[in-house]
């Protein structure tokens, strides 16, 4: 007769109203090889300890809510299977490089601000009326930016990036990849305006191409590659402004 198998989860606990320091709390969870770490956390919350706090929604790797550190690696907990850890204990912590709100929930306001900073929307001088039909974009033009449009804002890359941890002014992998996504979109004309932001001292140049953002990205966005390309674009833009400061698209503050 089969004994019920279990696995231990060690959850990072921190409550802003009562704790000054975090602690770890262990829970025995029934082991099911189809379960992901998120299922185990939900089971704990449902049946053992309702005060365990975490974010989640889609459980299929696309809403981006459930990123946490699993045994020290940033992961989507809906895609981290228990069977890859069993029978050893699993340590779950909130994403690093973010302030912790409570337990496994981090503060993402700074991240949201950085997304907004790169102006992640189509900028055009001439906006066609919808009655004129769609802007044409060939599959080849689409391929230029498609990969960089796949970011689900799960923020794993921010936890993998040492520069994010050290440099507040660094916009970070996801935001820079998003800015680059629009810069590479054949429908967009806002490159100069966007680079204006990215050219600021450590905003983009803080990146030293550690490359771990790309390694941990669950959607294969390759932010590291996007940032390298953005730097090359930024350098061109910089020299364009330096050589002809009144040239196309140049705005105030150029050539500093």
């Amino acid at each position: 007769m089969a004994e019920t198998k279990t696995i231990t989860l060690e959850l990072f606990r921190y409550h802003p109203e009562t704790d000054s320091e975090p602690r770890f709390q262990s829970y025995e969870v029934p082991y099911d090889e189809d379960w992901v770490v998120l299922d185990a956390i939900n089971w704990i919350k449902d049946y053992v300890d309702g005060s365990v706090t975490h974010r989640w929604s889609c459980r299929m790797g696309v809403c981006g809510s459930c990123g946490m550190m699993v045994n020290g690696e940033p992961k989507l907990t809906c895609a981290a299977f228990l069977k890859n850890y069993y029978p050893f204990p699993i340590k779950v912590e909130p994403l690093v490089n973010f302030p912790v709100e409570r337990d496994l929930v981090v503060d993402m306001e700074g991240f949201m601000d950085k997304l907004q900073d790169v102006k992640p929307y189509i900028i055009r001088d001439d906006v066609n009326d919808t009655s004129e039909g769609e802007y044409l974009q060939t599959p080849a033009e689409l391929a230029q930016y498609k990969q960089y449009s796949m970011c689900i804002n799960c923020m794993l890359c921010y936890s993998a990036c040492p520069v994010v941890g050290h440099e507040d002014d660094f916009l970070g992998p996801a935001a820079l990849a998003l800015g680059h996504r629009y810069n590479k979109d054949s429908r967009d004309q806002g490159q100069s305006e966007r680079l204006e932001v990215m050219l600021r001292s450590e905003a983009m140049w803080g990146c030293t191409f550690v490359g771990e953002c790309t390694v941990v990205c669950p959607k294969h966005v390759d932010p590291a590659g996007a940032i390298q390309q953005a730097k090359a674009m930024g350098a061109q833009e910089y020299f364009k402004r330096f050589v002809m400061p009144k040239g196309a698209g140049a705005t105030k503050g150029a050539g500093a």
């Binding site: 601000d113 730097k231 150029a254």
Partner: peptide
């Protein structure tokens, strides 16, 4: 509701120049 932005620099910097030399 956004809870305040950090005071990030607002000027483009010369980093582009050094990076271009680094890259080449």
């Amino acid at each position: 509701m956004s809870r305040g932005k950090s005071g990030r620099p607002t000027r483009p910097s010369g980093e582009a120049f050094w990076w271009a030399l680094f890259s080449a």
